[in-house]
Design a protein around this nucleic acid. Structure first.
Lengths: 336, 336
DNA sequence: CTGTTAGCGCTTTCAT
DNA sequence: ATGAAAGCGCTAACAG
């Protein structure tokens, strides 16, 4: 029988103080490493705290401090391929400190988003990260929020907000350079739906870099859907109409998988006759492919980590705004 | 100039009360829908609250109530295929109420898990959900926690804990029944690593159901890895050694994709000559496949939602324990 | 109906 | 070095 005094409720600092035979004030100082405490006293307090497994009530601490050590993470759709790595990166960056993260999935619904926002503000989060699943701009949460906000992946439409996005234009450009450096001259581009900013940005990077090299874009930018099916179909048509094509840039890894399937069945050797590149570097697709797929990684975890860092800075008063683009990186495998 | 009194800090109930010309107590009652308040007074208070965009401080409320309306979600690895849908289901189920969720990724590290646990307890969460990425039993968080815990997907080794897992034995059994009902009699099973409880459970369900039907398991349970590569290799060997096989049960959708690839290249018609089934129903794989892959769905979101419900019940005092298995469900597509 | 008083658990002056 | 007292923002008895 050690504890068992207040049946339901958890031990408080007062319990510790009583047990140690000191006042709450002293107990507080002892536990928080304040200096004016006699070593012996501190030891007694610490021991008492351990004995009753005292855990300080962060709510009470937060009430006083005016800071809670929590942040809110509002995501548009959790199931998406993109929110998650960002979230992981952020969680990781926060986790190193003493921050805890509230996760809210708005399910792409702005009503629900507002609801979550209110809840988070009520819980006095120190800051917010809003992550989207497409790079298309999204409405701002508003300018007059009492805490800083960082937008990740999906930028805010408001220039006064800080948004972090992958540099898809550069990603597209780099993939062209990469193929050109390997001697490819007849490059095609098969991508997803045209209404995705991501698709447009990459296309822009590809087209401009190709013309900078004085090279044509074989067959023009072919928009379709982000699926294997489309990758197969588009590739079938491509190699029929342009038998001289020697490089295929795909809008994502699934399209690339479709392309590889069609090429294999047509007896085209990869990378012998034609090189293929994916985008997103979704490992389960790239390494399941035959041969393993070269892809462009958009460094989502880094983006999440940076979002966390920027949020910290903003909480500390260093507020930025505008759109910050993060570099992509090519992960070479066997298809190039 | 309406507010602008306390520069940095957010409006408190006292600000509202002052503005409305009432006491804090009355303001509180008015805002919380307590009855003994004159309608006019209430209106004045509500108006005042809106005018200064007052948001009640949930920390203060939680301090008094002894309940915070928050729960902790500790996951083994966020990137896994399995934690996420569970998390979504739970988030959804909680979201309908007024709960907020702390997300913690322990990265499979028990030190980090303990760290997060302490942080969550300090924040006075009302309950915890622990989600794993494999169905293999995991160590308990401990019996003497001050809040209820529900384990999802990865069950606790402690029988006194409540664990929720998919019924993989039944999932395996059902897949056999499904193929048998479609006239298949020579069924094989290619699956992942043997040290996965999931692989063993499914194998058990398959083997026992097959023998209940008086049918053989062609080639025995073939353990390997959860990859397309393995699916291709194992299938190549299978159709060479057992040209009479007419059904292939795969341990996951990736293995099934590999199987389909090999079968197509060998000229075997699916589902004409042989039926193929995946497991997990990972849509990006099942609907990218040619033909679309029939698969077993383990209803992860439902599992997450149930975890949330069970946690609520436990918070309300209705504590259960033991392992609860949730049914799987076959999603028929074109490969069967 | 409304206001006063007393805390929730903790930290922080300010005396002692 | 220690403790008494005030107060963070809010709610819940109690009086009036």
């Amino acid at each position: 029988m050690t504890i068992a005094d207040k049946p339901q409720s958890r031990p408080t600092l007062r319990d510790v103080a009583n047990l140690a035979g000191v006042s709450v004030a002293t107990a507080s100082k002892a536990l928080n490493g304040r200096d004016q405490v006699h070593p012996d006293t501190r030891a007694r307090v610490v021991l008492a705290a351990e004995k009753i497994s005292f855990t300080p009530n962060a709510l009470a601490q937060g009430l006083i401090a005016g800071q809670t050590g929590t942040v809110g993470l509002i995501t548009g759709d959790l199931d998406g391929r993109f929110s998650l790595p960002i979230l992981m990166g952020a969680e990781d960056a926060f986790g190193k400190g003493k921050m805890s993260v509230f996760l809210c999935d708005a399910r792409g619904d702005s009503i629900r988003e507002q609801y979550h926002l209110d809840a988070l503000l009520s819980r006095r989060v120190d800051g917010l990260i809003v992550v989207g699943s497409r790079t298309d701009p999204r409405p701002s949460l508003g300018r007059n929020l009492p805490v800083p906000v960082v937008y990740a992946y999906a930028p805010s439409t408001d220039e006064n907000d800080l948004s972090l996005v992958p540099d898809d234009v550069q990603g597209g450009a780099d993939s062209v350079d990469f193929l050109v450096a390997r001697g490819r001259r007849k490059i095609a581009h098969i991508t997803g739906q045209m209404d995705y900013t991501a698709a447009q940005d990459r296309a822009r990077g590809i087209e401009s870099t190709l013309s900078a090299h004085g090279l044509p874009l074989i067959g023009g930018t072919q928009y379709g859907s982000w699926t294997e099916q489309w990758g197969r179909n588009a590739t079938a048509r491509l190699i029929e109409q342009h038998p001289d094509v020697d490089g295929i840039l795909c809008g994502n890894d699934q399209i690339a998988r479709g392309a590889l399937d069609t090429l294999r069945e047509a007896g085209w050797e990869v990378p012998g006759r034609v090189s293929v590149m994916g985008y997103d570097n979704w490992e389960v697709f790239t390494t399941g492919a035959r041969p393993h797929l070269t892809s462009v990684d958009i460094n989502l975890e880094a983006l999440g980590a940076l979002a966390a860092r920027r949020l910290f800075e903003a909480i500390d008063g260093d507020v930025r705004s505008g759109i910050e683009s993060l570099p992509c990186r090519i992960v070479p495998r066997e298809t190039t």
